[in-house]
């Protein structure tokens, strides 16, 4: 829907990330375009989740720039970051629901903080959000009473509460059975299709990648950066990079 606009919604330039002396990622540059589903993938420990933390401003980069919708969030300005984050939703790995609140309260929290709507409208919205993730009727359940998949779906409903323009997800299918995982994929596609939400998803689930990704960014821990970027089918069929081929064909192999 926004494909023809020339401006990327997320722009990363020469990002260097790490802890202290230990550099995990260097020279990472890529763009995410409005409305696309962009998957960051790679083997365990290659810095996927670290990269995601940089994109949502949880970590400051050692060097380089991250801009969201034209605003540079890597400068360390809290005000700018807050402005940007209000247009973003984040789904954490375990759902990160607040355990002391019911599902309805969890979802109502960002709505109460930011929407400015009266309580009855928030009630309706909570119902619609739960309906969106097929959890109608679970309003008054506590997070601990739900299964892992349901907690993730509820986390997704909370992340989508303010209809963000960008949704970040950290391994949404981790720990889920194939059917639940496919349901999550279906939800992502629906949300992307109906609301035009741009999605940045960290994953290494091959089936999800082929089902939902418009483009992927592949990281490798040996070169500490990007090995490939593009459409997953094209990468699988045409990439000459040995690591990329091994990844898509699920073959073990020695390091580079």
């Amino acid at each position: 829907m926004f494909r023809d606009k020339p401006r990327p919604i997320i722009q990363v330039r020469d990002l260097v990330a790490g802890f202290g002396e230990n550099i995990i990622l260097k020279n990472v540059s890529f763009d995410v375009w409005p409305g696309e589903i962009f998957i960051i993938l790679g083997s365990s420990g290659c810095g996927k989740s670290t990269l995601l933390k940089h994109l949502i401003g949880l970590k400051e980069p050692m060097d380089g720039k991250v801009s969201i919708n034209g605003i540079d969030i890597s400068e360390g300005s809290d005000e700018k970051l807050q402005t940007v984050l209000r247009q973003c939703g984040v789904l954490f790995q375990g759902g990160a629901l607040f355990s002391s609140m019911t599902l309805a309260e969890n979802i109502a929290l960002p709505l109460r903080e930011y929407s400015g709507l009266p309580e009855e409208n928030i009630d309706y919205l909570v119902k619609m959000k739960l309906n969106l993730v097929q959890l109608s009727g679970f309003e008054n359940h506590m997070p601990a009473e739900l299964s892992g998949g349901m907690q993730k779906r509820a986390g997704l409903a909370r992340a989508m509460a303010l209809n963000p323009k960008i949704l970040f997800c950290d391994e949404p299918s981790a720990g889920l059975d194939p059917i639940t995982s496919a349901e999550m994929d279906r939800l992502f596609l629906d949300i992307n299709h109906n609301l035009g939400t741009t999605m940045v998803i960290v994953s290494h689930e091959l089936s999800s990648i082929f089902n939902i990704a418009d483009r992927v960014l592949m990281l490798d821990k040996h070169i500490k950066g990007v090995v490939a970027e593009g459409n997953p089918f094209q990468l699988r069929d045409h990439s000459l990079n040995a690591y990329v081929q091994r990844f898509f064909s699920r073959k073990p192999g020695a390091a580079h």
């Binding site: 709507l117 409208n121 959000k129 969106l132």
Partner: peptide, 14 residues
Amino acid sequence: LDDFGVSTLAGIKK
């Protein structure tokens, strides 16, 4: 119209 819009209409009805 999005879900916020629907909630607006629902709120008026209420």
